[in-house]
Structure formats: C-alpha cells, structure tokens
Deep mutational scan, measured.
Amino acid sequence: GCWSIEHVEQYLGTDELPKNDLITYLQKNADAAFLRHWKLTGTNKSIRKNRNCSQLIAAYKDFCEHGT
C-alpha cells in the first residue's frame, strides 16, 4: 500500500525509504500522463539524478490525492 505522506517527507532519501523505492512505486502505479507531468519517465537512475527529494515528495502527494 501507500506510505503516509508524513513518512515520505521524513524518510525519503534515507535507508528507510530510498528514492529508488518511491520512483519504482510511482512508475508501477501511476499512469503515463502523471509520469510525464512529473518527469518520472525513463530509467530509475536518470530520475534519481534529475529529481530531488522535494520534487518526488510533491509528485507522491499529488498521486495520493488524485490517485489513478
């Protein structure tokens, strides 16, 4: 299931919640338009490089609020 937004804000980028895991989750569960909008298409590695934690948190919040 979903992590809470508080959990993501607190732990994203740590061993508790690697950016990797959040990106994988969104790529698996969000639709193509969402991924394009948040620039989460492409390889996990390129996304990790190009999107910082606050951008990923914003995307995750949007996903939780509007889910697909």
Rank of each mutant, 00 (worst) to 15 (best):
C2Y: 15
C2V: 10
C2T: 15
C2W: 14
C2P: 06
C2H: 05
W3F: 06
W3S: 02
W3Q: 02
S4E: 10
S4L: 05
S4A: 12
S4Y: 04
S4P: 06
S4C: 07
S4F: 02
S4I: 03
S4K: 06
I5E: 05
I5V: 10
I5L: 12
E6Y: 04
E6Q: 06
E6S: 09
H7D: 04
H7N: 10
H7C: 04
H7L: 06
V8A: 03
V8N: 02
V8F: 02
E9G: 06
E9M: 13
E9I: 09
Q10M: 12
Q10C: 10
Q10G: 06
Q10Y: 06
Q10S: 11
Q10P: 00
Q10A: 09
Q10V: 05
Y11C: 12
Y11D: 03
Y11I: 06
Y11M: 11
L12W: 00
L12F: 02
L12C: 06
G13F: 01
G13R: 01
G13W: 01
T14G: 06
T14I: 01
T14L: 04
D15Q: 15
D15G: 13
E16C: 11
L17N: 00
L17S: 02
L17C: 04
P18C: 14
P18M: 04
K19S: 05
K19L: 08
K19M: 08
K19P: 06
N20F: 08
N20R: 15
N20C: 14
D21V: 15
D21M: 15
D21P: 03
D21Q: 15
L22Y: 00
L22V: 14
L22Q: 02
L22S: 01
I23L: 05
T24M: 11
T24S: 11
T24L: 14
T24E: 13
T24R: 13
Y25K: 02
L26F: 11
L26E: 00
Q27F: 05
Q27V: 13
K28M: 09
K28G: 10
K28F: 06
K28W: 06
N29K: 10
N29V: 09
A30C: 11
A30Q: 00
A30W: 02
A30S: 08
A30L: 00
D31R: 06
D31Q: 09
D31K: 08
A32V: 13
A32S: 13
A32K: 13
A32C: 10
A33E: 14
A33R: 13
A33H: 13
A33K: 13
F34I: 03
F34R: 02
L35K: 10
L35N: 03
L35D: 01
L35E: 01
H37W: 06
H37T: 15
H37Y: 10
H37C: 05
H37P: 02
H37D: 09
H37A: 14
H37K: 13
W38Y: 08
W38L: 02
W38C: 03
W38Q: 04
W38V: 02
W38H: 13
K39N: 04
K39H: 09
K39W: 05
K39R: 13
K39M: 06
T41F: 10
T41R: 10
T41D: 10
T41Q: 15
T41P: 03
T41E: 13
T41K: 10
G42L: 05
G42F: 04
N44L: 14
K45P: 05
K45C: 07
K45H: 04
S46G: 08
S46R: 15
S46F: 07
S46A: 10
I47M: 14
I47A: 09
R48Q: 12
R48C: 10
R48S: 09
K49R: 12
K49H: 15
K49D: 10
N50T: 09
N50W: 06
N50E: 08
N50F: 06
N50R: 15
R51A: 08
R51M: 11
R51T: 12
N52R: 08
N52Y: 02
N52G: 06
N52T: 11
C53R: 09
C53K: 09
S54A: 14
S54P: 10
S54D: 12
Q55S: 13
Q55Y: 15
Q55P: 03
I57S: 07
A58W: 04
A58Q: 13
A59L: 05
A59R: 00
A59E: 00
A59H: 00
Y60G: 00
K61A: 08
D62W: 11
D62V: 06
D62A: 13
F63I: 03
F63A: 03
F63M: 04
C64E: 05
C64T: 10
C64L: 10
C64N: 09
E65T: 15
E65G: 14
H66L: 12
H66D: 12
H66N: 15
G67F: 11
G67R: 15
T68R: 15
T68I: 08
